[in-house]
Design a binder for these strands. Structure first.
Lengths: 248, 248
DNA sequence: CGTGTTATTGACCAACATCAAACTTAGTGG
DNA sequence: CCACTAAGTTTGATGTTGGTCAATAACACG
């Protein structure tokens, strides 16, 4: 429907970094049919139990995957920026085992599975890149398991800020040491396995210690090196290539 | 090197269930070169930081993936039975972001990446099955994130027992409601993000309430239905096909 | 300006960790 | 077959982290 969606271009570039794509492959990707939807904060792009026939590319905004557990509480599983496809796995896994929600107003493009599959058959490099993208997803999940299982609140939060910063910087969404994190403290709590109150206190501690600064939802990292050490953060698991680490 | 390794056969069967394989594809898989290694408990099959040129198939025993965090503590990320390949992802992710260790004496077969890649080129169904296997891995990680983030010690443990039981039953490793779980309470603690002492107490609670029975490392599930409810367990995420749920 | 959401604070509580010791079990060598 | 040992399990006492509840303050938006 549309050409020249910059986030689609970013997605193609990121695939190309994972597995070099021929020019025709890139062209074919940029001609995918996009069903574009504008989303409000809180809108579920996909729901647990669905059997989707499309995957979604985030065009604008900020998206998370989550599960609801017994007591009705929510656990956030991952965050996704513009230019990412959070549910590529639904190509192969019929039924969604979690939901995907917008954390901020934005736009997403649904990509038909049929076309994606056709592209993979035609261009094996695309299949490789898709697979590799889902593997990196898995690597991030593993790091989150370690984060939730073995780190204190302060460490977890520091780690999350490090991951957010590195990923946003890689996507060109940072402004120096600052970046927009469109999350309420309650959502942060759902990602970190903490209560909202404790998130508030932990955040204050990070600020008190001069590690970060918050101006509304805009966060600035004041002492990257110490933040990284506290959060026990090592960007290897993001598999971003050379730019894995960071100089303040 | 060897023919007729039953665990290899089981692995091929499980791939075949994920994506139907032609007879020649199955034959080709069964002719893979196997570098068989006998492992002691505690042995690292693969180490974080490695750039492996092989993936490993568990032939016998019980294996886990883990990460070491800042304080030197270990977080277990997943368990793997005989007939599973815990590090298929290393086909595409150059550097290991975690380690894999034997939790019990056993045997593993290392499969050369080169041969696996050749098979994927020759038989696209194999590539599909491999990919899908790694996606299921990811689904299990997601459930573990929810488990660690939002459930109490008792719920987590119940959930882990449910997952272990269902997976083992699916692999034909159960004896009625019983199964061998070759884990110390300390390892259980490393999987559940708890202390060993608290694992002990929680285990006692499960026993006191008539949910499970432990005879050494042999566990018997006494009240599946209640255990499942307590652990908030729904086998969908295991993507095992029809036999997802269970009748006591 | 209201009005609803989000952030912050305080008081109190529960879950789980830590430490240290005793007890049990499974191996091992004599 | 027994004694010895090391690993794993169990227990008790105590400490800490983080949760819960409830109220207030700060924003954001129409």
């Amino acid at each position: 429907v549309s050409s020249l969606q910059p986030p689609l271009q970013r997605y193609i570039d990121s695939l190309n970094r994972l597995s070099p794509l021929a020019a025709e492959a890139r062209a074919a990707l940029s001609n995918l049919t996009l069903r574009i939807v504008r989303v409000q904060e809180g809108f579920d792009l996909v729901r647990e139990g669905d059997k989707p026939a499309e995957s979604c590319l985030v065009l604008e905004g900020f998206v998370c995957r989550y599960k609801i557990v017994a007591g009705g509480q929510r656990q956030i599983l991952s965050f996704h920026l513009a230019g990412e496809v959070p549910d590529l796995h639904s190509l192969h896994l019929e039924r969604m085992d979690h939901s995907i929600a917008a954390m901020a107003p934005g736009r997403v493009a649904y990509l038909p599975h049929g076309e994606l599959i056709a592209l993979m058959h035609k261009f094996p490099e695309i299949a490789d890149a898709f697979w590799k993208a889902t593997l990196i997803d898995g690597a991030i999940f593993r790091e989150w398991i370690a984060n939730l299982g073995r780190r204190t609140a302060l460490q977890r939060m520091a780690h999350l800020f490090c991951e957010a910063f590195v990923r946003m910087r890689h996507a060109g969404l940072t402004d120096g040491q600052g970046f927009q994190l469109p999350l309420t403290q309650a959502s942060l709590a759902e990602a970190l396995g903490l209560s909202a109150v404790h998130v508030n206190r932990t955040l204050q501690q990070l600020r008190r210690e001069g590690l970060i600064e918050s101006r509304g939802r805009f966060q600035t990292i004041l002492d990257w090196d110490r933040l990284r050490r506290i959060g026990d953060f090592d960007a290897t698991y993001l598999h971003l290539g050379k730019s894995g680490d960071h100089e303040a």
